[in-house]
Design a protein around this nucleic acid. Structure first.
Length: 219
DNA sequence: TATACGCTGGATCATGACTG
DNA sequence: CAGTCATGATCCAGCGTATA
């Protein structure tokens, strides 16, 4: 895993710069700028990987794939075409993770009976929209497609929210932000084991929700 | 009775310190 | 440098309690 320490002076300078300016420095060969940007977004990549870990994927492999996506985003970002680097990086990281998972599931043919399939149709058997597409919404750059995927995510989130208790919602929110069990327990003033249990219930409920989708469709 | 929540204990895994 | 050990984080199962 990438772990880079910048000198305090460099760090302060980088902090004062906009992402677009940092990207420009990287493209000019500034390795400090590259280190800074990776450190800045590494927690986002980890948090993103967690969303896939929850539904049964392999965590560290996904984090690594996410980092590859981040590198590609830094390499390919063109400030003239996208509103922000953050949005572009989000897209690249998600796409990299999805591609890796799809490739892995195709090649291994692993018995995944104990997991939730990431390639199953999300609404009904006729739908070509998979769970991966809905959760990450990164199949294409087409704005309409992206908008539809986003609406689907909200739909799934809404269904899940109905199933969760207040505690579970708060725990999930912090967990998805990248907080550790320890940090969540401090923020919510709960025993760490309560956080642990809440997350176990959330995972069970999520699997239940996905099983229902598979059986009858969401809409 | 079902559900939400918390408690307990054990297992697994990653990481860092220590040692030969 | 490789092996061992300790520790912390996380995962999981089972149980008890409170409440609607």
């Amino acid at each position: 895993m990438v772990s880079v320490k910048l000198a305090e002076k460099d760090y302060q300078i980088m902090r004062s710069l906009h992402d677009d300016e940092i990207i420009r420095l990287i493209h000019q060969g500034d390795s400090h700028a590259l280190d800074f940007l990776i450190n800045k977004y590494i927690n986002y990549v980890r948090a993103k990987a967690r969303t896939y870990f929850i539904i049964g994927a392999d965590k560290e492999d996904i984090v690594q794939e996410g980092m590859i996506g981040l590198y590609k985003a830094i390499r390919d970002y063109d400030g003239d075409k996208f509103s922000s680097f953050k949005a572009f990086a989000e897209l690249c990281v998600t796409r990299q993770i999805i591609t890796a998972i799809k490739t892995a599931t195709r090649q291994k043919h692993t018995p995944l009976n104990s997991y939730v399939s990431l390639d199953k149709p999300i609404y009904d058997e006729e739908s070509d929209r998979t769970l991966l597409d809905v959760i990450a919404g990164a199949k294409s750059f087409d704005p309409q497609e992206l908008l539809e995927n986003r609406e689907s995510i909200f739909d799934m989130e809404g269904k899940l929210t109905e199933l969760l208790s207040d505690l579970e919602k708060r725990v999930l929110s912090l967990y998805m932000d990248g907080c550790t069990y320890q940090e969540i327990s401090v923020k919510l003033k709960r025993h760490i084991k309560s956080i642990d249990n809440a997350l176990q219930r959330i995972k069970r409920k999520l699997e239940l929700l996905l099983e229902k989708n598979e059986a009858g469709g969401v809409r």
